[in-house]
Simulated assay, not measured.
Amino acid sequence: MAGHTRWKLDRERRLREGAPSHPEYDLAGLDLRLGDMIRERRRELGLTQAEVAELAGITQPALSRIEGGGGVPTLAMLDRIAKAMHTTFTITVGEHAAA
């Protein structure tokens, strides 16, 4: 979780200072936001990592890594996690026009 906090602090600093973005930094941010979405939904449902992991057919440490931004699930794994929580995740890939 320390890495996650460090990322948030670095992001805030970059935004304040208007620092240019870096592709690897942006990818790490996407990983963390995906993990945040999964963790928030799991907590809303009152489920433990162990419960979701068992229902999704993955290990609890694997789910923990995903929630912490340290692991990126395959699309198939993300689908199993969503089904385990009776939810869907919408992910946009690539550039899209601002609304």
Rank of each mutant, 00 (worst) to 15 (best):
M1G: 14
A2L: 11
G3T: 12
H4E: 10
T5I: 10
W7Y: 14
L9G: 07
R14Q: 13
L15I: 14
R16T: 14
A19R: 15
P20R: 10
P20V: 12
P20D: 15
H22L: 11
H22T: 14
E24D: 15
D26E: 15
L27F: 13
A28I: 09
G29V: 08
G29E: 08
L32C: 00
L32G: 04
L34I: 13
G35A: 01
G35H: 01
G35I: 03
G35T: 01
D36F: 00
D36P: 00
R39E: 05
R39K: 04
E40V: 02
E40Q: 07
R41S: 14
R42G: 00
R43L: 01
R43S: 05
L45C: 12
L45F: 10
L45I: 12
L45S: 11
G46V: 07
L47S: 05
L47H: 14
T48M: 05
T48H: 03
Q49I: 10
V52G: 03
A53E: 12
E54G: 06
E54F: 09
L55V: 04
L55H: 08
A56C: 08
G57C: 05
I58R: 02
I58D: 08
P61D: 04
P61I: 05
L63G: 05
S64R: 11
G68A: 15
G69N: 07
G69W: 10
G70T: 11
G70Y: 12
G71E: 06
G71R: 02
V72R: 12
L78P: 11
L78C: 13
R80W: 02
M85P: 14
M85C: 14
T87R: 09
T92Q: 06
T92F: 00
V93E: 02
G94C: 10
E95V: 13
E95S: 07
A97N: 02
A98R: 00
A99Q: 02
